[in-house]
Design a protein around this nucleic acid. Sequence first.
DNA 1: GAATCACGCATTTTT
DNA 2: TGCGTGATTC
Length: 663
Amino acid sequence: MNLQDEINQLNPMQKKAVLNTEGPMLVLAGAGSGKTRVITVRTAHLLNLGTSPENVLAVTFTNKSAQEMKRRVSSLLGRGNSKGRLMVSTFHSLCLSILRHNAKHIGYKNNFSIFDTSDQLSVIRNILSDIKFVDKNFKADAILEKISLMKNTDPINHKNPLSNHDPLYDVLEILYPRYVETTQTLNAMDFDDLIVNTIKLFKTNPDILEKYCNKYRYIMVDEYQDTNTVQYQLIKQLAHPRENLCVVGDDDQSVYAWRGANPGNILNFERDYPDAVVIPLEQNYRSTGNILTVANTVIKNNKKRMEKTLWTDKGLGAKVYIMKASDEVDEAQWTAQRISTLALEKTIPYESFAIMYRANIFSKLFEAELRNLKIPYTVIGGTSYFDRKEIRDIIAYLKLIANTDDAVSLLRIANIPRRGLGNTTINQLKEHADANNIQLFNAFEASNNPHAVEFTELIAHYRDIFSSGKDMRMAMASLIKEIDYNEYIYSLYKSNTIALKRIENVTGFIDTIERFCGDGTILLPELLERLALNDNPYETKEESVGVTLISLHSAKGLEFPVVFISGVEDGIIPHKKSVVVTGGIEEERRLFYVGVTRAMNILFLTYTSFRKKYGKSSPSFTSEFINELPKSAIMYVNRNEDNAMEDDQTVKAHMERIRKILG
DNA sequence: GAATCACGCATTTTT
DNA sequence: TGCGTGATTC
């Protein structure tokens, strides 16, 4: 299908958004309203009008959506067309590429490292121990969260986000500058720094900013409701003065305030850009009528939102089913049984089902019950492959090889595998480095400890090997062999099976790396960037197998024919801890709304009478959101006479549709 | 440096 | 309840 046909098929609002290419525009894209389609067709249209692809910048939050967007734009324009020159990028990778070219202007070397969360935690723990600050009430991860919030809200004026009654307030006043100083000394940036430092770069070097402003004449931002204050500032800087800025988002799906997202960015768009055109997309192409009625009714209870009502021409469809289980085991069994029945009797593929929950911990019981019934499933989220100790160790080697100033990586692996560099020796070296104001690595080099010197020689040797651009796999394999990492793993774990598994992980990691590299060879710094930003341009998108188990947060952006939202109980949704913080009950309601609007044809809401919490069973109470549901669109299903659905002709008709859709 | 134990804590997560 | 951390001990 060519572009013009594609445009002709859009609904009037979508078409308006696509054809309006100049000036600021807010596309208020309701759930399932064809948002991605609008963005991609709009981009293709822009290019088709003669705009050069290098003058267009599209910003997303995840690499996955960036890749998806590139793919769709290039398929709209036909092959060989501009895919490579079009800048579709995440906030972080955009900033990273800007900073790599301009590192010296903000006091960094261009081989700066990117620190992930665990690197950040190490920095904080080191500072705490340096200043001999011991207080169990101040945990590194709580401090980190606040530091991140501080950076994301007001990095330049160092505005403390806490009230001065908060016990963490004073700690943060001391730690924040120290943390910033330390990371800079280590020639490292954390994820927040990537954005913050870009803003600073632009503030202090208007000429550099101007260059980028001239380059990016048309800017699009996806998921605008998730932008935080610094991302907002960045976009504002870049869009000036043309303001050909198209932001797309849905304030009702803003569920990341707790990590700094500022829904005010979308709510205030018209105030910030007075000439803005606002286009609401309210026709929903995903869900049937009753599901949308439930979604609309619930979300209307939020006060701070932009008014919109989703509608569909699909008809009412099945009612939203509500199941009250006796306890969490019953809930999981019931859900698994329902899936089994629907799958077998109505021949719905398992891939059409999703079970959603507020917290990943809840996946356990569902997994067990699905296993019981031999139903295949995929759990999304949880701890990442890259968080494993053995993978982190190897990555620490690579990071140190790429940036010897990275003392966090250095300290991680100085004695892994053991090479006679115990705590005492390392502390002496640290003191020596501090006293002489030199990098720790240089203190190792200059030390009269042969182990320390040998270690730096090893790193230097591999620095040469990796920078020569030789085969990455060979270099890695040889490094792992030279340090005898496998032997170390065997010595670490008593059980051979566990040790073998860990070793397999390391081998698997080398394979993963190869996939990150694609056909061509890339150098170590680029590999590390891709690893840090989780950006694998060669990853083949694999269809997940079986029933999807997923948190409500992770489900944003996805859709499934049949959805179960579990644990719709007071304290879970809304979560007891969320009610008192940033987003409060309204954000919880949005999260629930996100879950509801994932469902295409059938939606179940489940909750319990009793639930085991921390080992002991206590009564659970229905979520207030259940009470907000419109009576006309819902139907209660009883455990003992669980046959209501089978008699429901609408369900049969809709199952028929699902089968058709899925071929 | 390793093994053991007690204690405390317990959303959401991408980059 | 169950895991991860940190202290304690050998």
